[in-house]
Computed example of a mutant assay.
Amino acid sequence: MKLIENFYCIQSVNFESDVEGISSIKTELIRPSIKILDVEYSEKKIYSKRLVSKLSTASDEYFTLDELLFLSKTYGFEIEENVYSKGDYHSVLKIHKLYDIPGDITLIELDGNEYLMIGFRRWQFDFQPRGAGEDMLGEDITYIFGIWECPLLTDEIVAKIKNER
């Protein structure tokens, strides 16, 4: 497992102009499109899952608490219990009050190589007048927590990330 600290990124700013360049992990980016440096690929598959555990749901849709604890310990993010639903846990990022939804874990397959990215999303401002088209895209700021090459994952976790639900 190797941490990738720098990557090429195109940030989409207000549908008008893109900002391109080298970015690094532990950075907030505006609607980023990320390309891993020095990796040429022709085939790319992306799978993503919210970093949550639900006690009441025994399915492949959510991680178990043990799986979420394993991911938290391995990749260094925090988790906490849901205040509204005891027994349910989710990932948290406490660097800004607007990070109020769990993070996402993304498995990227590039020509036989695997990469793992963990990111958290938020709105840019407390009160942000937005158009319906922009709201449809979701949160505009993404904090790239980390990107790893050859990630350490169990088969069960990989299966859950790849689950389409």
Score class of each variant (00 low, 15 high):
M1E: 11
K2P: 00
K2A: 10
K2T: 14
L3G: 00
L3M: 10
I4L: 14
I4R: 02
I4M: 05
E5V: 06
Y8C: 01
Y8V: 01
C9S: 06
C9E: 03
V13Q: 05
N14L: 12
F15Q: 07
E16H: 06
S17V: 06
D18W: 04
V19L: 13
V19D: 05
G21H: 12
G21I: 12
G21T: 12
I25G: 06
I25V: 15
K26G: 01
L29Q: 03
I30V: 15
I30S: 04
P32T: 14
S33T: 09
I34L: 05
K35W: 07
K35D: 11
L37H: 01
V39F: 10
V39Y: 08
K44W: 02
K45N: 12
K45Y: 10
I46L: 07
Y47E: 03
Y47Q: 03
R50P: 00
R50E: 14
L51C: 08
V52D: 00
K54V: 05
K54I: 04
S56E: 08
S56K: 10
T57Q: 05
A58W: 03
D60F: 06
Y62H: 07
F63K: 01
F63W: 03
T64M: 03
L65A: 07
E67R: 07
L68H: 04
F70K: 09
F70Y: 15
F70C: 05
F70T: 12
L71D: 03
L71R: 06
S72G: 05
S72V: 08
K73A: 13
T74H: 02
T74W: 02
F77P: 00
E78T: 06
I79Y: 01
V83S: 09
S85D: 08
Y89K: 05
Y89R: 03
Y89H: 11
H90E: 15
L93K: 10
L93S: 07
I95T: 14
I95E: 11
H96I: 06
H96T: 05
K97Q: 14
L98F: 13
L98D: 12
Y99F: 15
G103N: 11
G103M: 12
D104W: 08
D104L: 14
I105T: 07
T106P: 00
L107H: 01
E109K: 05
G112K: 02
N113V: 03
N113L: 08
E114P: 00
Y115G: 02
Y115C: 04
L116H: 01
L116R: 02
M117R: 08
G119S: 15
G119Y: 09
G119P: 00
F120I: 13
R121S: 15
R121A: 15
W123N: 12
F125K: 14
F125P: 00
F127E: 15
P129N: 11
P129A: 10
R130Y: 04
R130L: 15
G131E: 10
L137R: 10
L137A: 08
E139K: 09
T142D: 10
T142Q: 14
T142M: 14
T142G: 04
Y143F: 15
G146F: 12
G146A: 12
W148D: 07
E149M: 11
E149I: 08
L152M: 13
L153C: 07
L153P: 01
D155Q: 13
D155K: 14
E156D: 15
V158G: 00
K160T: 05
I161Q: 01
I161N: 00
I161E: 00
K162E: 02
E164F: 05
E164Y: 03
R165T: 13
